[in-house]
């Protein structure tokens, strides 16, 4: 088998995951895209391990480690997303701007009261915060 086939497939999967991470709004969909990127890396590791006939099986051992780390990552990520949802009432990462640089009219970002109730849009949130 040509090595180009698994390598190109891994590249395309990685870029699909990259698009998902950048374009998705729900935090859980972003986590799914991260899984796609990790799987692309796994495919590369397996293909190169089979190509090089590594006697230490380094590629496959690293693939197993990556799968385990991905499982730990998805558990912790979901715990964080659930915590954010419980505090803010939303898991849209576009609205989680508590650490953003303030520009324009100042929006008070408290962890309670105003932010626990999600506004329909970001500019509505600003409007009702300045009003």
């Amino acid at each position: 088998m040509h090595l180009a086939y698994p390598a190109v497939l891994a590249v395309l999967l990685f870029c699909v995951g990259l698009y998902g991470v950048l374009a998705r709004r729900n935090a859980i969909l972003v986590l799914m895209s991260v899984e796609l990127m990790l799987n692309a890396v796994n495919l590369n590791l397996v293909a190169f391990d089979v190509w090089l006939r590594d006697t230490l099986h380094a590629g496959q051992a690293l693939t197993l480690f990556t799968i385990t780390i991905a499982a730990a990552e998805i558990g912790l990520g979901l715990a964080i997303v659930l915590l954010v949802f419980r505090h803010r009432g939303s898991s849209d990462i576009d609205r989680l701007t508590g650490l953003a640089e303030p520009h324009g009219p100042e929006v008070p970002h408290g962890p309670d009261a105003t932010d626990a109730r999600p506004a329909p849009a970001a500019d509505d949130e600003k409007a009702e915060a300045t009003a």
């Binding site: 590249v11 395309l12 990685f14 870029c15 699909v16 990259l18 698009y19 950048l22 374009a23 998705r24 709004r25 729900n26 969909l29 576009d94």
Partner: peptide
């Protein structure tokens, strides 16, 4: 489900895919 910067994300992903 998608944010407003979808076109930017599409451009970045397409550029990365083409280069890689």
């Amino acid at each position: 489900a998608d944010s407003e910067n979808r076109l930017v994300a599409l451009g970045v992903a397409a550029a990365a895919a083409a280069a890689l």
